[in-house]
């Protein structure tokens, strides 16, 4: 197995605050990796550094072996590295189908390729993916009118529409009805196994992440605290301390 994503000694400061300090992390091709840590431990900042939203102060980020630190979000997305947001970002005034259509990989092409109607194949794929996340009935609804949980699902479907190699998911189950969470875990697994998308998931719900991820990295105070299989991390005393605030 080769590393799809490698974060090497990344440091990110905001003014005097060190949000990420000397963080290293590997995500192997085809796996589901987890990223956990208490609030404010720098998980979302790390996503921003990987996806190009923040300028990395020190260290380097490699995607498929090539350095990407110097790139902005759009070219990184075109390489096949896509993220979702903790606060869920969708195009509110557009319908779900339109949200999906403009998220398709071919929409990243040049101007000339944009000057065409949405191809039927794309529409079919959009419908299939909306059905996959359980939003098919809402496909003509304005995205802003969906509930928070539904918007979260739509954002996930939009990301899949983009056909990423690596998908960074920021708290995919937050705000989702607890009775639907098992279904969502199943869908994340199927996206991984059937669509071949490697996942790096930030998650606060321990039950979810222990079930889902094959390897977990735990951050605290902007640093890597522990790393290993779910069992290793669960049994690590430092992780327990970080969450309970004893440290």
């Amino acid at each position: 197995m080769s590393a799809l994503l490698e974060v090497r000694n990344v440091t990110k400061r905001f003014g005097g605050v060190v949000a990420n300090s000397n963080i290293s992390l590997r995500v192997e091709k085809g796996e589901i990796a987890g990223l956990i840590g208490p609030n404010g431990s720098g998980k979302s900042t790390l996503f921003g550094c990987i996806a190009g939203a923040h300028a990395v102060d020190e260290g380097e980020v490699f995607f498929e072996g090539a350095p990407i630190k110097h790139l902005r979000t759009a070219p990184i997305a075109r390489l096949g590295l896509v993220r979702t947001y903790q606060q869920t970002r969708i195009y509110g005034a557009m319908s779900c189908m339109e949200n999906m259509a403009i998220s398709a990989r071919e929409a990243q092409g040049g101007l000339l390729s944009l000057l065409r109607p949405v191809p039927p194949a794309t529409s079919r794929r959009a419908e299939d993916l909306l059905a996959f996340v359980g939003l098919h009935e809402k496909r003509e609804e304005k995205a802003a009118r969906l509930s928070f949980g539904q918007q979260k699902l739509l954002e996930f479907a939009m990301a899949l529409m983009n056909e990423p190699k690596l998908l960074l998911l920021d708290e995919p189950t937050a705000g989702i009805n607890p009775t639907l969470i098992n279904g969502l875990i199943d869908r994340l697994r199927r996206a991984n196994s059937e669509l071949g998308v490697t996942l790096l998931v930030i998650e606060h719900n321990m039950r979810v992440i222990m079930n889902l991820a094959q390897r977990i990295t735990c951050l605290a105070h902007g640093q890597v605290l522990a790393e290993g299989t779910p069992d290793d991390v669960r049994d690590d005393a430092r992780v327990l301390d970080a969450y309970l605030g004893v440290a």
């Binding site: 939203a53 902005r72 759009a74 997305a77 896509v82 993220r83 998220s103």
Partner: peptide, 10 residues
């Protein structure tokens, strides 16, 4: 920002 993050050539 989302349009950028989805790879559109804004």
């Amino acid at each position: 920002d989302k349009a950028d993050a989805m790879g559109l050539r804004t």
